[in-house]
Simulated scan of single mutants.
Amino acid sequence: MKPNIGISEKNLEGVIKILSTLLADEYVLYTKARNYHWNVVGPQFNELHKFFQSIYEELNEHIDDIAERIRSLGGWSVATLSEFLQLTRLKEHPGEYPDARKMIENLLNDYEAVIRTLREDIVKVGDEYKDLGTADFLTELMEKHEKTAWMLRSFLS
């Protein structure tokens, strides 16, 4: 049954497409944080091991929230690795095991890329697709990502 929530089917499809791409970005970011949690070495191992864990745990919650938002709008959540890799705007680095500083830089670059696209998507979802609920949802997610990006930048300072 399709939702009857005051947003046209065409607009819902546009919002779901944006959310699906975001879901893929978040999943790739989650996987990268897991990778770094498992593979970090060096004098700050314990601190960074725990920090990367806190990042992927938070991303896991975001992933679930985004997928459920898609479902609440009548869409189907992408849920396979091949779909995530087709949709994501982020880059993976298979076979690379950077030092701790580069791990943090990579995560920061990805977080900032997601933040930039969230800014654009918030406007599009609200203005073009008339979905203020999803615009609010994305704004809250952006604010959480900005805080994580600040923490990552602080590690690099």
Rank of each mutant, 00 (worst) to 15 (best):
R89V: 12
S72L: 14
E47G: 12
L23W: 14
K50F: 15
P3T: 10
S8V: 06
L29R: 03
S54E: 12
N35T: 06
E57T: 15
D99R: 05
S20W: 12
T21W: 06
I63Q: 04
E9N: 03
N46W: 15
S54R: 02
K91P: 01
I70F: 08
A100R: 02
T21F: 09
I7L: 04
S72N: 14
I66W: 03
Q53N: 02
L85I: 15
Y27V: 09
P98Q: 02
L59Q: 13
G74S: 11
R89Q: 13
V15Y: 12
Q53M: 01
I16G: 10
E83K: 02
T31N: 15
T88K: 15
S82C: 04
E58R: 04
W38S: 07
L90A: 09
E26R: 00
V28E: 04
T31P: 09
I70L: 03
P43W: 05
K91W: 03
S54C: 02
H93S: 00
L81F: 13
H93K: 00
E57S: 15
S82A: 07
W76H: 07
L81S: 03
A67P: 11
N39C: 00
L81V: 09
I63D: 04
I18W: 11
V15F: 13
H93V: 00
P94I: 07
L22E: 10
L12I: 03
G74E: 06
E13Y: 06
S20Y: 11
V15K: 07
D64M: 01
P94F: 11
E47F: 13
A79C: 10
D25S: 03
I7W: 09
R89K: 14
A33I: 05
E9T: 06
S82L: 08
R89W: 10
E47D: 14
A79T: 10
Y97C: 13
D64C: 00
F51W: 01
V78D: 00
V40Y: 10
E96S: 08
G75Y: 10
F52R: 00
Q53A: 02
L90H: 09
R34Y: 13
R89C: 07
G95I: 04
S54D: 12
L48S: 09
S20K: 09
S54T: 05
N46K: 15
A33T: 05
A24I: 12
K91R: 12
E68N: 01
A67I: 12
Y30C: 01
S20P: 10
R89M: 11
V41I: 07
R69F: 07
I55C: 13
T80N: 02
I18H: 13
E58M: 07
E47W: 10
E61L: 11
A24M: 06
F51H: 02
N46H: 15
